[in-house]
Nucleic acid binder design. Sequence first.
DNA 1: GGCTGATAGTTAGCGGCCTAACCAATTCTT
DNA 2: AAGAATTGGTTAGGCCGCTAACTATCAGCC
Lengths: 189, 189
Amino acid sequence: MPHLFIKDLPRYECLLKASKQFPELDPSACEAFLHLLRAGDEVFLATEQNLNENSISHGRFGVLMLLAQNCDEDCGAGRESPGMTPAELADNARVTRATMTGLVDNLERDGLVSRTADTHDRRMMRICLTPRAHEFLEKMLPGHFQLMSTLMSPLSESERKTLVKLLNKIVQHASSLAKAPAETAGSVA
Amino acid sequence: MPHLFIKDLPRYECLLKASKQFPELDPSACEAFLHLLRAGDEVFLATEQNLNENSISHGRFGVLMLLAQNCDEDCGAGRESPGMTPAELADNARVTRATMTGLVDNLERDGLVSRTADTHDRRMMRICLTPRAHEFLEKMLPGHFQLMSTLMSPLSESERKTLVKLLNKIVQHASSLAKAPAETAGSVA
DNA sequence: GGCTGATAGTTAGCGGCCTAACCAATTCTT
DNA sequence: AAGAATTGGTTAGGCCGCTAACTATCAGCC
């Protein structure tokens, strides 16, 4: 399931050569793009491996984290019903509701979440963490956080700040592209 | 299919707060980690959307690119049989052979690649691009390269170099972790 | 020549991602 | 109050990852 379908990134000379054939190919942009995908993949796969050793998928783990976070913070803030709805979960996890149905199905089957009908709006369901899920998170989260620290350990504090700054520039531009794709892409060409 | 299952990244204060509860959580590492996943996702999704408009998936596109590259370069270098084997493709694309079988199945069904038996070793297949695939790539690659340029346009040349340098540090460390996970993780703790 | 083991490719089955289509319940409109 | 539009959740079917098990072919060794 990697994002980047290449084992060995092309050398810069190859990109230069390819840019002769395709004038649209900007070698330094291409290089940065490929390295970004590669790095994202690499750290993703590292954490996924860790999650798999705890017998959970990245998707299901994400749902548990969302529930843990929103339970802790919003319950105190005066929410009437506990947990979250599948629609909220899907929205926050950036997947479709259909996908969330499947994730919740499997989490429920494994006894990590519970589905209960909302009392006020009978269309809605409330998804809540079970005690078992809390135990599970308590046990595996330290290792997960440790791994994130280890993965980022080669960078100093100031390097991390620089990295975040550069990545933010890309993300902000990309998300503005997503809203008006045709015009922006055309104007740059 | 995002790598990062969170719509809104947590603010730094939240990470600080969480680090009180979990001493293993290094807020700046966590922040860098999340931003890296987010940025990788964002550019990946942007290109995927572009590929989908050309009615091809990222996985299949990767296979076509591998074939296009290895045809051009290795045919001249004195390879006896044209194309690549499924095993070579799977290895280079970082997926299993079973996955590659499926990808080639669909590409063959769509008339973009051909499967022929190797004459020397009857266990092997040779996968080749069809003329239709060459046409297809000619038509859609300029837009793909253009999009990569656009996505990286917010960064200057020197910023791109810095980004690549930082990402390389992470990747090199991560891949060394992958070979000896237990010891390295332990020693850093 | 005929075992044994390694290698290439496929198949079967599962998880998780998607879209499209579908009901049930709510809300808006008139 | 009754029909229309919206919203929440699920289902069905497809693609694409994976592992495990299988067949066919090749290579080595007695």
